[in-house]
Computed example of a mutant assay.
Amino acid sequence: MSDHEYQRQVEELERESATAARLFDIRLVIGGLFAIYGVIMTIAGIGASDADLEKAQDININLWTGIGMLALGLFFLAWVRLRPVVPAPSTEERSGE
């Protein structure tokens, strides 16, 4: 195996590693779930009946919880976008070669 071919394989594996790191970032999973559940809760809160509001002492819990969850989910998704995961440097970069 030539040195050039070895270097090409190493670079390809580093690209795949970086893609996997971004794909499985926990902030993306948490943000996505909170955003989805936030939308569902907000819709449930908008369609709340008078009987539902009476049970909660005239506070629309579903609406406020949905808005809070949606805001938290959007925060996590913005965080992923603004501060992406940077993979660890390879052994060659650490050794200074």
Rank of each mutant, 00 (worst) to 15 (best):
R94C: 03
E92N: 06
I61N: 01
L72W: 11
R22L: 08
G45C: 07
L53P: 00
L74W: 05
S49C: 04
L53V: 05
P89H: 06
P84V: 08
A78N: 04
Q9C: 09
E54S: 05
I67T: 07
N60G: 01
Q9S: 10
R22Y: 03
E12T: 11
F34A: 11
V86Q: 09
I59R: 08
G32I: 06
E11A: 14
I61S: 04
F24Y: 15
V29E: 00
A78F: 15
G38P: 03
E5T: 15
L28V: 07
F75Q: 02
A48C: 07
V80T: 12
Q7R: 15
D25F: 05
F34N: 03
A18L: 09
D52Y: 12
L72F: 14
E92F: 12
I61K: 05
Q57N: 15
S95L: 12
R8P: 01
G45V: 05
L63E: 03
E93M: 10
N60H: 04
A35Q: 00
I30P: 00
R22A: 11
M69K: 01
A71N: 01
E16M: 14
G47E: 10
R8F: 10
Y6H: 15
R27S: 04
L77A: 01
Q7M: 12
S17N: 15
V80S: 08
L53M: 08
V86E: 11
W64M: 10
G66E: 05
T19W: 14
